[in-house]
Design a protein around this nucleic acid. Structure first.
Lengths: 242, 242
DNA sequence: CAAATAGTGTCTCTTAGACAGTATTTG
DNA sequence: CAAATACTGTCTAAGAGACACTATTTG
């Protein structure tokens, strides 16, 4: 029984049906591009609109590319690197985000001519971060990092607009029945804070009582009451089994 | 304004933050692997189990790879090729399936050591085919193509078992509310035929009347009645807007 | 007619959605 | 106390699920 536990350079190269070995094929560059979504307060609040809004993180591009000036943070996959690692590296390099952010895969974009520089596949990712976690970055590098409305991110290069659209759809799917699964809020929160986040994700107002009854079974009720605001103090909830 | 409409060899190579150009990076091979699912009659029918069963198409592998003898059909992505084209090509080459089968992306498998031959990313896909469409292939190349239970496909190389599991989950999600979205049945069918397919996908029996009431609004009712069987003849339905 | 399959009437239980009430704080 | 916010009782409509009944064929 031949045992193969890793790359074995001395072994004859595997050949496929057309007689070509693995290394004979031209290979694409593989990139990761990440839509980092966050929830930020609206500039002009209205009573019939959610008080918060979904926003997406953009980074500035080199001036000579002939492309729009802002794009999603991305990078090329390095040898031996996992996609999730490349996402974390791109967020650290391009936007100074160093906390362990979990990104989930959305979809591979594979149009051969999507990048004028050559044959590049892009694996689109979704990540979510609390607005407070982005404040340091936004003030430290205002010319290199900014936020845009996720619903109208403006002109973006490649297929980045489609990536943002896919990210928002996936986020809405994830938030439909589960309380803040991507942890846009901290460990504990009031029902109003949770509803504000879900309203921003949903893009519309949600019924107060219906929302509470849908979410309460999935939350741990603490004995703590919130303080410092007008009105009856709200109860503080935390995540189940977390 | 510089205009860039395609690869421009004369243009200086784009350089990233670390000063490396696109071509300086080692690039992975990119493969596609497809779980082709079908619905086949059970060998040993029982009254408390669905009469049909989800099965997955396997192809035989070269003997010298030190891997299990059967795997999902896959291939390497060729230069300038779309992922969907590579899937169609792999199904034609490995299993003789030449009809236009739509495959949907599942996820990218990116463990650097997943393939002993080198650095290979695999984009997993899901396709579905009527059992009748596979009959010709199965009889023409019995030693190179076979079907296995999707719930227990046996020993498969790489992460192909995980791909089958992901494919079944996605199929169940797609079939939850929509009548036969991947067209495992022909253009028209009776409610019983539709329910049998959905029971096979679901992996359990479904309530007759509840199922009908869930599906009927999404179907076009024809005037035709099925014939040739015992009992009251069943009405024939067809897909909406198709 | 018996057996087999197709299709429907109707009941119950659950849930979404909404309104309007009560409870508890600030100033 | 007025205003503001948190929370709950309860009604209604829609839907899931299940049972049992009717309908129409073959042999």
């Amino acid at each position: 029984v031949p045992s193969i536990s890793g790359p074995s350079p001395g072994r004859p190269a595997y050949r496929d049906a057309s007689g070509r070995s693995l290394t004979d094929y031209p290979r694409p560059s593989v990139a990761v591009d990440t839509a980092v979504l966050t929830v930020a307060p609206r500039r002009h609040p209205a009573p019939d609109r959610p008080a918060h809004q979904l926003q997406v993180l953009l980074v500035s591009r080199p001036a000579d590319t002939g492309q729009p000036a802002w794009s999603l943070p991305g990078t090329f996959l390095h040898e031996g690197e996992r996609l999730a690692e490349a996402v974390a590296r791109s967020l650290a390099e391009k936007a100074g985000i160093n906390r362990g952010t979990r990104a989930s895969q959305l979809q591979v974009f594979d149009q051969p001519d999507r990048d004028a520089r050559g044959w590049v596949l892009s694996v689109a990712h979704l990540a979510a971060l609390p607005h407070t976690d982005l404040q340091a970055t936004l003030t430290a590098r205002p010319a290199r990092v900014r936020l845009a409305r996720a619903s109208r991110p403006g002109s973006l290069p490649y297929d980045h607009t489609a990536i943002v659209t896919a990210a928002v759809s996936e986020l809405r799917r994830l938030y439909r029945r589960t309380p803040d699964p991507l942890r846009l809020l901290g460990a504990s929160f009031t029902m109003s804070q949770l509803r504000e986040v879900h309203e921003a994700v949903h893009g519309g107002l949600l019924q107060k009582d219906t929302f509470r009854r849908a979410m309460e079974p999935h939350l741990h009720t603490t004995d703590t009451l919130a303080t410092g605001s007008v009105g009856r103090p709200s109860r503080v909830f935390s995540r189940r089994a977390g």
